[in-house]
């Protein structure tokens, strides 16, 4: 510990004061819009002053009629979140494990494909998705859950990174060979050996997928589907206040989800160092 005292002098990082000044100033600037949203929802009409009547209306279940789209949208977004996580877990995870164990030479290709949606803007994919979805509507009907196929692509880069970090840290090849030598088949290896070992990565990938799906607007809007974000935009034209309340709630929800991801990701390292 005496060494760290000496090294403190040459530490290239900021001093305590510098750090808190930078964090404080930038943090405060970034809080302004959030505070403004809260202030906006508390306004008491044109007369001035503040009250909680709008929040009371939202939580008291007094929203009917024109606010109905929000609840439809919220319900749809929750269905889509579950369906997207299912698509991601069923299609991406076995492929990643298989590539890791059996086809390591395909690792770079898989990574390239999974990160591709960053390069191809959602607005471009939508142009080509419209014809694809007219076929899907004929096959599966036009249920809102079908949008999960498109969302599975959107969440690919985030989900891939979360899982890959975890997968790389586990010696899956040796584990699978050990299981194999004890007579395990492929489903057993995947479900009982690999999945329990990478469940942190899977959980983080699922959470980030949920957050991305709840915030998605582009694809739903242009394919004329109703989700949380499109319904908020529609309702905001008539009543901006309630839309902002829901936007704030969604924001807090996403923040808690991501905070949880951080905790999930960190706990093993904490254990290892103690």
């Amino acid at each position: 510990m005496s060494a760290s005292n000496r090294l403190h002098d040459i530490h290239p990082g900021p001093t305590r004061t510098t750090r808190w000044v930078i964090v404080g100033v930038i943090g405060a600037l970034f809080l302004i819009p959030i505070v403004a949203m809260i202030e906006f929802t508390l306004r008491k009409g044109l007369g001035g002053g503040y009250d909680f009547s709008r929040w009371a209306a939202v939580f008291g279940g007094q929203l009917t009629g024109e606010y109905k789209p929000i609840f439809t949208g919220l319900g749809n977004s929750l269905i889509l979140a579950v369906a997207t996580v299912a698509v991601m877990l069923v299609l991406l995870v076995p492929t990643m494990v298989l590539v890791r164990i059996r086809f390591p030479q395909l690792q770079r290709v898989l990574e390239f494909v999974c990160l591709l949606p960053i390069t191809i803007p959602a607005i471009v994919i939508v142009v080509g998705l419209a014809p694809v979805y007219s076929v899907i509507a004929r096959m599966f009907g036009s249920g809102v859950w079908t949008l999960a196929f498109a969302y599975g692509v959107i969440v690919l880069p985030y989900a891939y990174r979360s899982i890959q970090t975890n997968l790389a840290a586990v010696d899956v090849v040796t584990l699978s060979e050990a299981a194999r030598s004890l007579g395990a088949g492929w489903p057993t290896i995947l479900l009982r050996i690999v999945v329990p070992n990478i469940r942190r990565g899977l959980l983080a990938a699922s959470f980030i997928s949920v957050a991305v799906v709840l915030g998605e607007y582009t694809i739903a809007a242009l394919l004329n589907r109703v989700n949380l974000q499109t319904s908020l935009v529609i309702v905001s034209k008539a009543d901006p206040f309630v839309s902002i309340i829901f936007a704030l709630l969604a924001l807090v929800f996403a923040f808690v989800l991501l905070l949880a991801i951080g905790r999930i990701g960190r706990s093993p390292r904490q254990k290892a160092s103690s």
């Binding site: 964090v23 970034f30 302004i32 819009p33 959030i34 403004a36 949203m37 202030e39 906006f40 985030y158 980030i208 957050a211 991305v212 709840l214 915030g215 998605e216 607007y217 582009t218 974000q229 908020l232 935009v233 905001s236 901006p240 839309s243 902002i244 936007a247 969604a250 924001l251 996403a254 923040f255 991501l258 905070l259 991801i261 951080g262 905790r263 960190r266």
Partner: peptide, 27 residues
């Protein structure tokens, strides 16, 4: 500090979209 910054950055960078428009109309 790191936990809050990481989560907040994730939310604002990936979740924003429509919410940001509302935020700046309110600001």
């Amino acid at each position: 500090l790191r936990s809050v910054v990481d989560a907040a950055s994730g939310v604002l960078a990936q979740f924003g979209g429509v919410m940001l428009a509302f935020a700046f109309v309110a600001t």
